[in-house]
């Protein structure tokens, strides 16, 4: 166990020495990997920020419920009371037909139209905010409301919610595809870096085999090198993400203020950031493992 720990410490030290011995190359590799990773990670963070908006209170789905013209005020009040107790409903606002007509009069150009009417053609209405913004939940609630005797028409603005959710799903898929492609890219980059490293250390590897080093012993520093390079790339990706989101948020803040929203782009949460670094470290390790498995066996001392 002690020997095992020491051998790992030595392998890590050897990997760090390799990096220290060629800092420009190591920095360039971390940069390439970092920028490649920043793309899907940024997309993911962007989607996450947007989901906070679409799922939150900034743009909430609403149901407009128009009562039958012959429904009495008592019917309307009974319905409001009933809906207030409904678990699916967050709140209900009653819009009496007189108020609706007044609002119509207030709209420029429509005042004359309103004046020409000899009776109020508008029905009483309810504007209702559901608890759930899921399109399916909206549909069920709207259907239930339509079945009520006092209700004439229910307008669910679920269409846009569905579109947005479909769009978000497509974007998520695109990001997953991009992430997969770039993961292959990262493995390929590490594979090649480690291949070059093996070639430059050929004499040392040959000697190690001749004096009794096991394959595992020879492989270990290269695996550490690959993993370290991956982690460094992950850290660069986080820095790129953080920097560009900070820059973008200046504009986003202005835009959001004009909508009276406090919306900001949020870079990855600490847990996600850690996951990114671990994930890219793992991919680096994999690239190194594949490279070492292929090229180390080919080096046979004579």
């Amino acid at each position: 166990m002690k020997t095992w720990l020491r051998q790992h410490r030595q392998a890590l030290a050897a990997a760090l020495r390799r990096i220290a011995g060629n800092k420009p190359a190591a920095a360039l590799n971390a940069l390439v990997i970092g920028i490649a990773l920043a793309l899907p990670a940024g997309g993911y963070a962007l989607l996450d920020s947007l989901r906070a908006v679409t799922g939150g209170s900034a743009i909430e789905p609403r149901l407009s419920v128009f009562l039958r013209i012959e429904a009495t005020r008592a019917d309307a009040e009974a319905l409001v009371a009933k809906l207030k107790d409904d678990a699916r409903v967050r709140d209900v606002r009653f819009v009496p037909r007189e108020q609706a007509l007044n609002e119509l009069r207030a709209v420029e150009g429509l005042a004359e139209v309103a004046a020409a009417l000899n009776s109020n053609p508008l029905p009483d209405a309810l504007v209702l905010r559901p608890k759930s913004g899921e399109p399916a939940d909206l549909e069920t609630l709207a259907a239930a409301l339509r079945a009520l005797p006092a209700v004439d028409v229910v307008q669910a603005d679920a269409v846009w919610a569905r579109r947005l959710s479909a769009l978000a799903a497509t974007a998520r898929l695109a990001i997953a595809l991009l992430a997969t492609l770039l993961a292959f890219g990262l493995v390929a980059i590490t594979f090649n870096t480690i291949r070059l490293q093996i070639l430059t250390q050929r004499a040392e590897i040959e000697l190690a085999k001749l004096i009794g080093a096991t394959d595992a012993f020879i492989r270990r520093p290269f695996l550490y090198l690959g993993a370290l390079q991956g982690v460094a790339g992950g850290v660069v990706a986080l820095a790129v993400l953080w920097g560009s989101f900070s820059a973008l948020n200046v504009g986003v803040a202005e835009l959001a203020a004009s909508y009276e929203s406090a919306f900001r782009l949020a870079a990855l949460a600490p847990g996600d950031a850690l996951a990114l670094a671990v994930y890219s470290g793992g991919l680096g390790w994999l690239g190194a493992y594949l490279s070492v498995s292929k090229y180390l066996l080919e080096i046979e001392p004579v």
Partner: peptide
């Protein structure tokens, strides 16, 4: 192949081309 390292650890070898690093 896997047994070779343990054989070689018990032998001290001075190579014709030295193989110094």
């Amino acid at each position: 192949r896997a047994a070779l390292p343990y054989l070689r650890r018990n032998l001290g070898i001075v190579f014709q081309d030295q193989k110094l690093l």
